[in-house]
Every structure is written in structure tokens, then in C-alpha cells.
Design a protein around this nucleic acid. Structure first.
Lengths: 186, 186
DNA sequence: GACAGAAAACCGTCCAGACGGTATGTTTTT
DNA sequence: AAAAACATACCGTCTGGACGGTTTTCTGTC
């Protein structure tokens, strides 16, 4: 008999809120803390309400994965469009996306993706598909050893940031960024 | 009244077996599958027996972490001892340890460590300590941009291997290895 | 070396709470 | 009026862990 029932219904906003909460919980308190109860409560929705949008937990995780990969696709495509040079175009977009100074805003989203990927074996398969697709699309322009090395380095830095052991200072970070961008053109 | 009670008691073997099972489960079926029931059953011990060695779940995870980091310490130290050149010594040991061809034997151990690290926020703090300690010890010899870049690249490749999206072929892998080792000396 | 006692290494059972999910109702939107 | 968007209540199972019992191993003493 609470008044929550009477509030305006905005399914899209609720859905986004639920996904955002799930992402935040996963990153801050670990994937084990992402329970239907915890998510629904933190999102200000009843569990029934949550289960209306996502019929089960797996679909919630899949929804999070879809949301993140769609964002990632969009960001990468945008960056590639404004890059006039074909060679290493994908690698540069990759670098620009994941090599963030200390950007808390967008950067966290990809961290969430990594956490979800590693903790949920089911999502690893889906990631593999995503990865293969992008790899095939950009073969020829981004398959050089240097480009591959650059992307690996970005992943490594990304991982260190995620684990909070990143020790590289701002100046060195900038130098590294230049180095990696140069490598994408070789 | 089963005969399991009567078998020979070998605490160390049981302890190792428990940790091995926990590691395997975490890697293959995700960290969520690492329950006291599942681990004890797969290890051939009763849950009571498991809880005798590890009084609670947290201590089990900590035990796994300790086991892995001790191994890692040992492996790194061994490789560093046989390296005559001081500059980049740690980085080369790091590369040799984590840059494995397709080695399933030891390589999986570090994968387990990553999975545990990412899924358990508590272990991230412990990892941070470990990392800082090694960083301080090898500052001066392994702080160059190239060495740092090389280590990042190894991490990236390691992550891709873990996620099963490693696409680099054997020949390119060998070339990359040489490149990274060269970079450690700059 | 024998033997008693203490300690360690297990096993089996039970429980309180958490978790994912169902079923059904109520309100709002279409 | 129908459907979508919620809420509330409830259930079966799983999970971490407590507890007491049983068997083996260790330890000191003679």
C-alpha cells in the first residue's frame, strides 16, 4: 500500500537505473554482490518490478553486456569516422577509448565490462564473438605487430587501473600515449 | 558410518587438493561456483573437513591468494637470479613468467589469480600491497618507459588469453617476445 | 618399545539467512 | 478494455557455518 505504486511510470528510466546500479555494485562490491534484492533495492524498484524488465538474473547480466557493448561499438565507430588515415585506425580508436587519464565518467563502464566478463563464463563466449567480429572487420589495417602490441599495452594499463595498481604518473602517461599512437601507424 | 573416516590422514595433501579444486572451479565455472559445498565435494572431503583447514570462506580465498603469490614470488626470484644484467631484470622475469606460449600447466595458476583478484574486492587490496612491494624493490632498474610498456603488453596478452580471444599466431608471438625482451634493456 | 592422554584431522547433521524465482494483485498508460 | 508497469507476499533451494562425534596421529613418560 505504499505510494511507490502511484508514481509516474517510466519504464526506460527504470531500466537504465537498474543497469546502472548493477554496474556500480559489480565494480565496487564485487560481482557476488549483484543480487536481485540488492539491485532492486538500490535502484528504488521492487524486486517484482525488476523482474518485469529482466525476467531472470541471466537476462539482467546479458542486458548489461548488451548495453555496454553497444556503447563501445558506438564510441569506437565515432572515433574511427573522424580519423582520415586508414592504417591503424581501429587501434587508435581503441587507444583513445581505453587509454583515459583518470576519467571516472566513461572509463568505469569498460571496467564493469571486464569484471562481468571475467566473473561470468557465459559472457566470455559473447565477448569472443564481439571481439572476432571487430577483428575481422579491421584485419589488414590493424594487424601489424606494432598495432597489436599497442593494443595489448592499453589492455594492460587498463587492467592495472582496474586493480588500482597503476603507478605511472601523468607525464609518463602522456609520453606513453604518444608512443602508442605512433606505433599504430607503423 | 562410511569408511571415509578411516582413511589415512594427510592434512597437507587435503589442503593442497582443496586449493587446487577451488582454483579450477573459479577458472572454469566462474567465481560464483566456488562454494564450500562444491569445493569440498569435488575435493573428496566433507564440508566439516574443509572447514577444519579453512575456518571460513574468506580464509579459503586468502589461502588461495597466499598460495599463488608465494608461487609467483618464488618463480620471479628464480628467474631474476639467473639474469646477469641488472637493468630490466624484473621486467624480463615478469615477461618470462606471464608470456607463455600456450602452457596450460603453470599459466592457469596466474589466470586464477586474476579472476580471484577481480571478483573479490578484498583481494584487490592485498594485491596492491604485493604489487607496491615489488615495485619499490625494482625501482631504478625497471622504471623506464619501455620496461613499463613491455610489462603492460604482457598483461594485455595475458588478459586476452584469459578471455580466450587471443588471436596472435605462434610466429608473431615469438617475434613479440623478442621485441618485449629488447624493450626491457632500453 | 608400550601405553595413556592430548591434539589434530576428519565426518555427519542441522540451521538461519540469503537468493532466485513464482504467483497474484494494483495502478497507470495506451 | 487491454496491456504494460509496477508492488507484495510467498516458496524451494542453496549457502555459509556451527556443533558434536569419531578416528587417527602425535607426545611425553616409563
Amino acid at each position: 500500500m505504499s505510494k511507490a505504486h502511484h508514481r509516474k511510470k517510466r519504464p526506460e528510466a527504470v531500466r537504465r537505473q537498474v543497469l546502472a546500479v548493477a554496474a556500480r555494485l559489480s565494480l565496487e562490491k564485487g560481482p557476488a554482490s549483484v543480487t536481485l534484492d540488492a539491485v532492486s533495492q538500490a535502484a528504488g524498484v521492487s524486486k517484482g518490478g525488476l523482474l518485469h524488465h529482466f525476467p531472470n538474473k541471466l537476462s539482467l547480466l546479458d542486458g548489461l553486456f548488451d548495453d555496454l557493448t553497444q556503447d563501445l561499438d558506438r564510441v569506437l565507430a565515432e572515433r574511427m569516422q573522424v580519423d582520415p588515415e586508414p592504417k591503424g585506425r581501429f587501434t587508435r580508436a581503441y587507444i583513445a577509448t581505453f587509454f583515459q587519464p583518470e576519467g571516472l565518467e566513461d572509463g568505469d563502464r569498460w571496467k564493469v565490462l571486464t569484471v562481468a566478463l571475467i566473473s561470468e563464463p557465459h559472457l566470455r563466449d559473447r565477448w569472443r564473438e564481439w571481439f572476432d567480429r571487430h577483428l575481422v572487420e579491421n584485419i589488414g589495417t590493424d594487424s601489424s605487430l606494432d598495432a597489436t602490441l599497442a593494443r595489448y599495452a592499453v589492455d594492460g594499463l587498463w587492467l592495472d587501473d582496474l586493480l588500482g595498481v597503476s603507478v605511472i604518473d601523468t607525464a609518463m602517461r602522456a609520453t606513453l600515449l604518444k608512443r602508442l599512437l605512433d606505433m599504430s601507424r607503423l
